[in-house]
Computed example of a mutant assay.
Amino acid sequence: MLRWLLLLLALAAPPAQADVFRVGDYAIQPGMEPGSFDLSASIPSVLASNDPLGLPEGCRETARERLNEATVTRYAISIDCDRAVTAEDAIITPWAVDGGTFLSTATGTRVQQALQPTGDTLSLPIGAVAARQRALPEIAVEYTWQGIVHILGGWDHLAFVLCLCLLARGRYLLALVTTFTIGHSLSLALAFFDIVKVPVPPVEAVIALSIAFMAREAIQARAEDMADPHGRRRQLAVVAGFGLLHGLGFATVLRELGVAADERLSGLLFFNGGVELGQLIFVGCVLGVIKLAAIFDRDQWVRQAALYGAGIVGCFWMIERVAGFTLGTA
């Protein structure tokens, strides 16, 4: 039974990328004729559709081209307006992205900013002459939420934390999670500010390998080994190293969200805080499930099934990612 369960976990494992956000990239510029504009949009292919844009009054779409690539769909859309656009005018996009970057020269001024969706739509401020300045509370709420969403939707990061939860208990678990947090917080900051630059595909492959390694570590752990100070120091060092790698994956997401220049420091701090909050929520859920399983004397069965499942899925993701960047598709 356990064998078939583990096989099912491997087959059902979704492709896990360091970037789990579905980010759109938008640019608009004046067209060749007065009152015309050219909009380009890059959308994750899973969200692509030919649904119409929501345009300001007096504007209409005159042409649309669509190019489908491996994971991204690109649009080139021509728009004509019979009046001058105002600061209140906006284009409503129909693609349900998690966020977007926006570059506009439509008003003769270069405007670049990050945008957040409202429901399943994103509003492009076609008439903006400057990026909107946001108050700190608004920045805090947005980036904290983005951090929570990222960690709770990042299957590879959660799988690694799961292995930590099943490796240790009590203060030692707290030490492992804290070490992991310090590691990925440090590398997140260094990568986000371009102090450290590492190619993304190899990092993703090693992140997947870290899951398999930590699952094996937890499966083979014995009570006497866990009490050995030398063994604990080795595990803390390994977790710190893998934390540095996971932080590089977090930085990829934060960078692609298109953080405004004047929000870089605050965005980094609140995004990282959201990641930690989401991580604590997940740890609490895992410990709750283990305690519940212990009531029915099934905690060891659940522990072994989860660790073998995480190890198999980690190996699957590693092979998938290595094959991807080897073939030049990552």
Rank of each mutant, 00 (worst) to 15 (best):
residue 223 A to C: 05
residue 14 P to G: 01
residue 182 I to K: 09
residue 97 V to D: 00
residue 112 Q to A: 15
residue 45 S to C: 06
residue 330 A to M: 11
residue 222 R to M: 06
residue 128 A to R: 02
residue 265 L to W: 15
residue 38 D to K: 14
residue 169 R to Q: 04
residue 1 M to Y: 10
residue 278 G to W: 05
residue 104 S to A: 11
residue 225 D to M: 04
residue 255 R to W: 03
residue 154 G to W: 03
residue 115 L to S: 01
residue 47 L to Q: 02
residue 150 H to Y: 10
residue 301 W to S: 11
residue 201 P to G: 08
residue 51 D to V: 03
residue 241 G to S: 03
residue 208 A to M: 05
residue 206 V to M: 07
residue 14 P to C: 06
residue 137 P to L: 09
residue 76 A to L: 13
residue 313 V to E: 11
residue 120 D to M: 14
residue 196 V to R: 03
residue 272 N to M: 09
residue 191 A to V: 12
residue 160 F to Y: 08
residue 8 L to E: 04
residue 91 I to H: 04
residue 215 A to L: 00
residue 229 P to M: 08
residue 172 Y to K: 03
residue 284 G to I: 12
residue 281 I to C: 10
residue 35 G to A: 12
residue 311 G to H: 04
residue 267 G to S: 09
residue 121 T to P: 10
residue 121 T to C: 08
residue 29 Q to I: 04
residue 251 A to H: 02
residue 323 A to I: 11
residue 46 V to F: 07
residue 327 L to S: 13
residue 206 V to A: 06
residue 35 G to P: 07
residue 58 G to I: 12
residue 82 D to R: 08
residue 219 I to F: 00
residue 226 M to I: 09
residue 136 L to G: 08
residue 8 L to G: 11
residue 125 P to G: 03
residue 90 A to F: 12
residue 110 R to M: 12
residue 163 C to I: 00
residue 147 G to K: 01
residue 1 M to S: 13
residue 130 A to I: 13
residue 52 P to D: 06
residue 57 E to Y: 11
residue 279 Q to T: 10
residue 314 G to H: 01
residue 118 T to R: 14
residue 181 T to R: 06
residue 108 G to M: 09
residue 213 F to H: 07
residue 149 V to A: 13
residue 210 S to A: 15
residue 236 L to T: 04
residue 260 A to C: 04
residue 81 C to A: 07
residue 182 I to M: 12
residue 303 R to I: 00
residue 93 T to P: 01
residue 25 D to T: 11
residue 295 I to C: 12
residue 90 A to N: 06
residue 302 V to E: 01
residue 73 T to N: 01
residue 188 L to W: 03
residue 162 L to H: 02
residue 138 E to W: 04
residue 115 L to R: 05
residue 165 C to E: 01
residue 150 H to E: 14
residue 293 A to T: 06
residue 289 V to A: 15
residue 106 A to M: 01
residue 104 S to P: 07
residue 198 V to K: 09
residue 20 V to A: 02
residue 316 F to Y: 15
residue 218 A to H: 02
residue 287 L to D: 00
residue 229 P to E: 07
residue 72 V to L: 00
residue 96 A to T: 04
residue 321 R to N: 02
residue 137 P to W: 12
residue 87 A to D: 11
residue 224 E to K: 07
residue 213 F to Y: 15
residue 155 W to Y: 08
residue 35 G to E: 06
